[in-house]
Design a protein around this nucleic acid. Structure first.
Lengths: 260, 260
DNA sequence: TTGCTCCTCACGTCACGTGAGGTGGC
DNA sequence: TTGCTCCTCACGTCACGTGAGGTGGC
């Protein structure tokens, strides 16, 4: 039997390491062959056929624990299994294609942390001349928002996009951008509050009949307001000034009796 | 800071488990964030951006140990790395395509253990009417041969294909197929030996000038002879009969003084 | 009050890789 | 004789998974 293969010959022909063949013996996938006079394993052609089959399946991503059943399966069972394996391979190929796109995005500096609708909204803000500082602030807010309420983002973005396309609201918002980093006692804040109120009065007249036009969760409003308060230092002061002028809240602003 | 994300919110937004995020903290890929009053981790937008970046690279197959360097790389370094990552992804896609073909071969019953040249040779044997038993015997021999001397197989197959296309040699070989499983004292063996000798005499006259036409390794001849001896029970008797008639060896048969 | 989320160890998993220490064949 | 292959433990690796046992928020 001197023509029979040593473990090294078997392994290299199948393109695996000697350790891998021994691993398959331990796992019971490949039967232990006879030993020669010095205790070396000696393999025949059948072992090569089996090992190549094992490798073909293992390389296709089939867990070794599934192999014993597959190796004794009849043609019909095997055909069914191979269809499933092929589907998995196709899915993995599609995944890698998606990975390639993601990596390309990363390389061109995009962050991938935001849904496309928000990315488009932020791009439009930049286009309209909003200060970069404000855009970044919005970006961080929307990241948190998207993580907390993923389902609400798309419709929220529609509302926000409509808002910045409204000329008067946009102007107000642009000016607010200049006050994002200001202190609570900044003298421009009362003026801004006056302008917000003037704008709101007009809106409230215009849309008096469509009070519940946005069926948005109250908890979402609270979340958005909180984000505003946490990211803009002078936000609390602005809300205070608005309350003095008869309004409460921010995202879903409402008329109340004036505090002062 | 109530708008900040819990570990569960962060994880599910990035499409990973909570355990994975904690794993990245331990590995130092994602900085440990501040804790809230009850010891819970609280994450901001920056953590989301980082985690998504980590996941994009990890899903692309980049080992976590390479990530620290990549996460602080400048645009140029990152572009170079991303090209390499993309190459690897393409290679993995090509691998899966090859896997798909291999699995399809397995499903249709092919063994994949033999190089195509041998498969073609065996198919031609069947076409020419060789007994299945002989074809199987050749198959097993060539599997061992291919594993022992992978480089010799292609040229050997050319020789073998030429041999079975030679009508007189083929006839001899076809008849030998009937004696593959016979005992050493089978009465047909001496007759076969006579026919082999008659054929050889003719060949030796025809090719007298081209003695070293095949520059084949002597060790390969020994290997092929040994395979013959081990796989055919009556082989030793046939070689004995040939030596009585003035020839020695089998694969590289030579004229010698007759033994008897 | 119940269930869900969070916390920290710490061992398990999968498919081998990698020495450690020793023997056999050319 | 030297180098290469083979042998058997047995621990290591990679990227988390999976309880174990306990606390905090609605």
């Amino acid at each position: 039997m001197t023509t029979m293969l040593t473990i090294g010959q078997l392994a290299s022909y199948a393109g695996v390491t000697v350790r891998t063949v021994r691993h398959y013996h331990v796992k019971g996938l490949l039967p232990e062959p006879e030993r020669d006079h010095s205790g070396y394993r000696r393999y025949g052609a059948a072992a090569v056929v089996e090992l190549v089959k094992i490798r073909t399946l293992a390389e296709a991503g089939v867990p070794l624990s599934r192999l014993p059943a597959l190796l004794v399966a009849d043609a019909e069972e095997f055909a069914a299994a191979s269809l499933e394996i092929d589907r998995r391979l196709q899915e993995e190929i599609a995944e890698r294609e998606r990975c390639r796109e993601h990596i390309a995005h990363l390389a061109s500096g995009d962050s991938l942390a935001l849904p496309p609708s928000v990315v488009a909204y932020l791009a439009r803000m930049r286009e309209l001349g909003f200060r970069e500082r404000l855009v970044e602030l919005e970006r961080d807010s929307w990241i948190l928002m998207a993580a907390k309420m993923p389902d609400a983002i798309v419709s929220l973005m529609e509302i926000k996009r409509a808002q910045i396309e409204d000329p008067s609201l946009r102007e107000l918002y642009l000016d607010m951008g200049d006050l994002v980093d200001c202190a609570a006692d900044d003298p421009r804040l009362p003026t801004l509050a006056d302008r917000v109120v003037a704008f709101l009065e007009e809106v409230f007249v215009r849309y008096e009949d469509t009070e519940d036009a946005f069926p948005v969760d109250q908890r979402l409003f609270e979340l958005l307001d909180q984000t505003f308060l946490e990211s803009v230092p002078c936000a609390w002061r602005l809300l205070e000034l608005l309350e003095e002028r008869g309004f409460t809240g921010w995202t879903n602003i409402q008329r109340v009796p004036a505090v002062r």
